[in-house]
Structures are given as structure tokens and as C-alpha cells.
Write a protein that binds this DNA or RNA. Sequence first.
DNA 1: GTCAACCAGTTCTCTAGAGAACTAGACTTA
DNA 2: TAAGTCTAGTTCTCTAGAGAACTGGTTGAC
Lengths: 252, 252
Amino acid sequence: MCALRMPQADGRLPLYARLRDQLASRIANGEWSPGDTIPSENRLAEEYGVALATMRMALKQLVDEGLLERRRGTGTFVKQPAFRADLFRFFHVYDADDPDGSVIPESRILSRHEVETPDEVRLAFGESNTTRCLKLERVRLWSGEPMLFEEVYLRLPDFEGLLALDPKDMGPLLYPVFLQEFGILITSATDELSFGTATQASARHLELPANSPVAVIERIARDPVGRIIEYRRVHGRPERFRYRVTLGEQHA
Amino acid sequence: MCALRMPQADGRLPLYARLRDQLASRIANGEWSPGDTIPSENRLAEEYGVALATMRMALKQLVDEGLLERRRGTGTFVKQPAFRADLFRFFHVYDADDPDGSVIPESRILSRHEVETPDEVRLAFGESNTTRCLKLERVRLWSGEPMLFEEVYLRLPDFEGLLALDPKDMGPLLYPVFLQEFGILITSATDELSFGTATQASARHLELPANSPVAVIERIARDPVGRIIEYRRVHGRPERFRYRVTLGEQHA
DNA sequence: GTCAACCAGTTCTCTAGAGAACTAGACTTA
DNA sequence: TAAGTCTAGTTCTCTAGAGAACTGGTTGAC
């Protein structure tokens, strides 16, 4: 706690940002589970020994990021994970037959290995990268049918331990794993959508003929400092593909 | 100004939200132009007779919405309009040959008239709507070639005056017009992307064969209170279509 | 038993202000 | 001229607290 009180004399993040990260890990740790009421802003401010407004700044950020939900007169709650993590934490890809997007897709990890960083990925990562990185291939299925094929590239010194992890422990969403296992919090991401043709690999896993048209999502995800953590290329079956995103204040 | 000081005893928005709207109109009015430095938070707080923190809340929202940019030690600036208004204010559609998305598309309004509200639009608008609405058709061109065909539906009592407006006065972007002419500020929007086939109209205006595959964007845009202001359906040529969106903190 | 009134606890709005971090420009000094 | 120093002005961080708005439960009157 004492370390938190120090002003950011060193190159550290400001107090409210460190509080935000602290609270995020308490969620990732499982100390507070989805649906739980977390302590009131008063109690939290007291517990960490900070001013109320400072704690509110930290909480506000977590609300903006979709981890928490606050209800006046009632309390602060951890959001249900369905649409707040991984692809869904920021954006929303879903099946055309499921207009609410309430079905959580099944997730199958196909492979994980260290590879030479492809040129287009290196370009996205920027100069400050190594020549090798981790590649993870995955398929997402809606009611048994393959809908998305994902190739995920991760920085290598940081994610070394991922190869040792049992896929069974990982669940359908990646970003909670990043936080829990490696202490890396994703707070911003850019998606770029376009249309292209399937590669050999994506055609095979999506059960499409070669060179079929597919939806393409390219994602760059960053941590709070702006460091690029992940580059992801997603191919999706076009006929049932839906992608939804809301900017600005969220309304029911 | 006095009206601003009143607590929201009536059903009004909180003070900081009204300040945000006030500042937004001063930008829309042209009192502050893109690139300008606006008065310091101290001066603004004094001018409106509110506390510094309250003014900061208003400014923060406008920064989040992309209207303003703040630089510590320097000041607060009105952002260049290219990527902060209309389709671009929230999202980013651009040409595949123009990776920065720096080219501003030409905009041609094809028609404006009152129509019976189509069923799918009524569904989006929700129950609280009239049976008639305003429809606006438009084409966007990148370097002379048609890329997007837009059908925009607007609430009718609110936008009655739009029919009288000269298209020459409207410029390439709609939301500034909404604010300037009708006092309506768009603060949130949801886009939904999918793939479909061209309609007769969209095929004609995009110069595509009938039933060609197209990219489809459906948008619902809301005002600060959450009222649905606009429903928009966009068809785009798929081969050069790119759509970009960033959530979370913006990094260079 | 039902309904209204009250109450404790929560988040939200707004105020007031101090000091740190940072920038651009003016000024000084070698 | 060039380089360093200072200063006024800006945003950013953090503190302290009061009152409003709202919720869920308890209490009390009838």
C-alpha cells in the first residue's frame, strides 16, 4: 500500500492509473467475481488511503473499459464476462442468426508455437520488437459450425510462459489469461475490417473452398502505456458474419 | 448563463453536460475553428461561473468525443475536422489505396424527401416514432470513383427544415449540420457491419452489376439523452472497403 | 396486511484549492 | 551566436468535503 502512496517521482504511472490496475488484478485474481458487489468507493478510498475523487477516477476507467458497472444508490458490480473480454471486450462479432449476440462461441486452440515474426506483423509492432514472436491459431464455432479463424501474434519475452499453459485452463477468452498469468492488461485496441479471400489455412478451418471471399479483421491491442501487445488476424465466414461496435456513451 | 447555473431541478442534464453542449455549439458556430486554441480551463470556468473541476469534466467529454485536443503546458485545441465528424467522427471508412485515410471523400447528395418509415427503420427507432420520416440519399466518392452509397433516415418533427436547406451549404459531413441548423448533437453511435448483396439503387450508384456482393453498415446514432436521431444504411464497394475503429485510450 | 414514511448506504454532481508536470518564449550569460 | 536559465501560463494530479439523487430495506400507522 505504501508504494501506492508515493507520487510518481519515478517514471511510474499516476496514482489513479495504478489503482485501476490494482483493482483490475483483484478481478482477474477472482477475489471479486462477475456479478459481485465490490466495496463502496468510500471504503476503497479508505482502504488504499487515497482521496475519494482519486478512487472515483480509477473506477471510472474500469467502467469505461467495461469491467465494472455502477448503479447509483446500489453499488459497483463486476460485469458478467460474456461481452467484456477478448474480442467482445471491445468489439462484438456474432452470428447473423443470433441478433442479440447472446451465444458465447466455442473456442478451439489449434496450435501454439514460436515463429519468425512475419513482415506485416513486424510492421504493426513497430521498430521495438524482436525477430521472433509467439503465434497462436484458434477457431471459433457458433453452435458447432466454424465461423472465425484467428491467428494471434504475441510479443515474445512477455508471453514465453504461454507455451507451457494447458489449453484447458485458458477458457474461451484470451485477455483474462493475459492479465491473470502475465499481469498484462489490454486497455485499447484498433480493429480494421475489410474483405479478402481465404488463405489455405483459413479455408481449411472454416470449411470453405479455396480462395472464397472472407471477412478480415486485423487487430492491434495495447496496454495502458500504449505498448503493442498483440497483433491478430481474423478470417470469418462472410454470409453469417456480423460485427458491432458502439462509440460514445452506452445506452440501453 | 444564469440558466446554466441552475441545478437540474427540472429534467435537465447535469451542469457539466450542458457546458459540454455549449462548448460544442461554439465550435459548430465557427467561433472556434479547427486548429484554434480555445481559452484556458481557468478562463472558461470563470466565464461560465463554474468550478474548475466541472469545466474539466465538460472538456474531458469533448476530448473523448474527438472534438478537442489538450496538450499539457500548451493549451486546448479544436481538432482538425477530417476525422472527427460524421462517419469519421466515430468510425473510419476509407479506401484501401489510401492507408492513412487522409483523403476526404467527395459527397454528393442525390435526393431528400419525406417518406413512410420503412419497417426495419421503425424497428430501430423504437416505438416512440412517427409513421413518416425524412430520407436522404447520398454517394461518397474517393478520387472520383463511387465507394459508398448511403440512405439516411431522420426523425421527422426535428429535421423538417432540412428539405429547405441548400445542399451547397451542407458540406461533406452531416453531423455538424445537425448541430448548427437544428441544435442536435450526436454523442454516440452503434455501427453494425455485415456482407450482403447490392439493391437496385445501390448497384446503380456504385456502378456495380445487379446483386453484387457489398459491404453493409447499419448505423444508429443517438443524442446525449440516448434518443435515436438517425438510422443509416450504407453499402460499400467491397474490394476497396476498409473500416477502422479504436476503443479505449487513443495512442499515436 | 398494506401502504406510506423513514433511514442508512450508495453513487453522482459540484465546489474549492494546492502543487506537480510541462511548454513556449523571454532573458541572461558566456 | 549559442546555450543555459528563468518565468508565466497551461494542463494534470490529488486532496477534502457538502449536498443531491437514488435504492433497498425497515419501521410504523392504519
